[in-house]
């Protein structure tokens, strides 16, 4: 347990009671006020991308799927590659703040906030594959934020992917993101045949990055590709 909240730096007051005294060995990185602002994704979610369905208007939900995923799966070029995405938290202003400090300011230690929940969500016998950064971006940030998320759970990331070009995703529209040419290639000499793969990324926005990665991995012989992201 760290003494100070990793985000607001308030001292963490542990409310020790008898049950936590005996059971709690888990590490706490956020104070209660900050923790309470991370909203777990629960309840009815889209079959594929785990978007909370209750927040969507009816016309955007078709048989437990959000309209975006329906559109992906209707598209012959994209259907069936990404088996399922799971996301931990809603992408609210608070999480935006954490992710931006983590990723853009390069505050590596914030990865620890998510380790426990990521650990709980990892299925057995999968290859954990981080979404890579371009060389320039990795130098700029000093680390790859998705790789760090895996490292901090105590697991080893498997580098199967390489970026072929380096434009910033966050500046693009959905149309642009979907219609960009393949942004990844498989690192040479990597066997992916018959492997179950779990991609790790920070945010699921349109799902385009993850589908690009999934597509190339499936074509290289992977048995299945799913994904886990912090935010949806």
């Amino acid at each position: 347990m760290s003494e100070y909240c990793l985000f607001c730096h308030e001292q963490i007051t542990s409310n020790t009671n008898w049950s936590s005294f005996f059971t709690s060995h888990k590490e706490t990185y956020l104070c209660q006020v900050c923790e309470s602002q991370l909203i777990k994704i629960e309840g009815e979610t889209c079959d594929i991308c785990s978007r909370p369905l209750e927040k969507l208007e009816k016309q955007y939900v078709i048989n437990n799927r959000c309209l975006d995923c329906v559109r992906w799966e209707e598209d012959d070029e994209w259907k069936g590659y990404l088996l399922k995405n799971e996301s931990l938290y809603e992408y609210n202003d608070f999480l935006k703040g954490i992710i931006s400090q983590y990723k853009f300011r390069g505050d590596y230690i914030l990865a620890k906030i998510f380790s426990l929940r990521i650990q709980q969500k990892l299925p057995p016998n999968v290859l954990l594959v981080p979404i890579p950064l371009s060389t320039e971006r990795q130098f700029e940030r000093g680390f790859n934020q998705t790789e760090a998320l895996i490292n901090e759970t105590g697991q080893s990331p498997i580098h199967l992917l390489e970026r072929t070009h380096s434009e910033k995703q966050s500046k693009k529209s959905r149309h642009d993101r979907i219609h960009i040419p393949q942004v990844f290639q498989i690192e040479e000499g990597r066997g992916v045949a018959d492997k179950d793969i779990l991609l790790i990324d920070d945010i699921y926005t349109t799902g385009s990055t993850l589908r690009h990665a999934a597509k190339i991995l499936i074509h290289a012989g992977a048995k299945s590709v799913s994904s886990l992201t912090l935010a949806r």
């Binding site: 505050d107 590596y108 230690i109 990795q138 130098f139 940030r141 000093g142 680390f143 790859n144 760090a148 490292n151």
Partner: peptide
Amino acid sequence: FASFPCSR
């Protein structure tokens, strides 16, 4: 202070 594996 914190530390991290730095790619630089």
